[in-house]
Write a protein that binds this DNA or RNA. Structure first.
Lengths: 112, 112
DNA sequence: TTGCTTAATCGTATATTTACGATATACATT
DNA sequence: AATGTATATCGTAAATATACGATTAAGCAA
């Protein structure tokens, strides 16, 4: 029954939640870190730097790719991934709007 | 076998992921929105404003509370919840550091 | 006390996530 | 063509997440 009501929420909330969902696993956060450090990097390098099997890294990369957080390019027998900074900017905006909305309405230091 | 390796990641990545996880459902994002709008609000009001059953809202509130994103206070037979702005600030810092780290290393508009 | 209201928790069915070995695919090299 | 390398996908087991009705607990009102 999970997710039966998910479309009843505002589109903006769905988008925020779906991006945050992609960032909701430490392995995926770590992948983004490594990709940024290396400026772009092949999957095998990620595998060697992170405590996950090759297939697991590949699966996480797929999630990040679907969320638009990384983009990849086939380079011979390898795949070269890098951070998609356009989406990072989008997250910055989404989070900025959202936290701005919250903060605007913050009154005292402790309301309840 | 899920989460067997989760402790092998940097503490900072685990913290970021765990907060984002709490924000990874549109219902929870919507709850935060309503709480901010109402400045603080009783559970029943959330139930009436959101497309979820009372028990579901209560469950999501528990997740948000565990993540530190909301705090609650018992008020007679009711519970009064509000956004915990200290944690919102923490998220701002965590995300700011993280995106800063990524952006510092962004070179051209398209690396791959 | 009895009954009413509110919200948390329980029980449970279903869906999704996670992890990894095994396999398949795709390109490069010989 | 045959072999090797790199990566995606498949299959699958186990853990989590999600949703909601039913129940419990806790306070208030009569």
């Amino acid at each position: 029954m999970a997710f039966a009501t998910i479309n009843e929420f505002p589109q903006k909330d769905i988008r925020i939640a779906s991006i945050f969902k992609a960032l909701s696993h430490p392995g995926r956060v770590a992948i983004l870190r490594v990709l940024a450090e290396k400026q772009s990097c092949i999957c095998g390098e990620l595998v060697s730097q992170l405590p996950m099997a090759q297939s697991t890294v590949s699966q996480h990369l797929k999630v990040l790719k679907q969320a638009g957080l990384v983009k990849g390019e086939i380079d011979g027998p390898r795949s070269c991934y890098c951070v998609d900074y356009d989406t990072i900017k989008e997250v910055e905006k989404l989070w900025g709007d959202f936290s701005g909305f919250l903060n605007e309405r913050a009154c005292g230091p402790n309301q309840c």
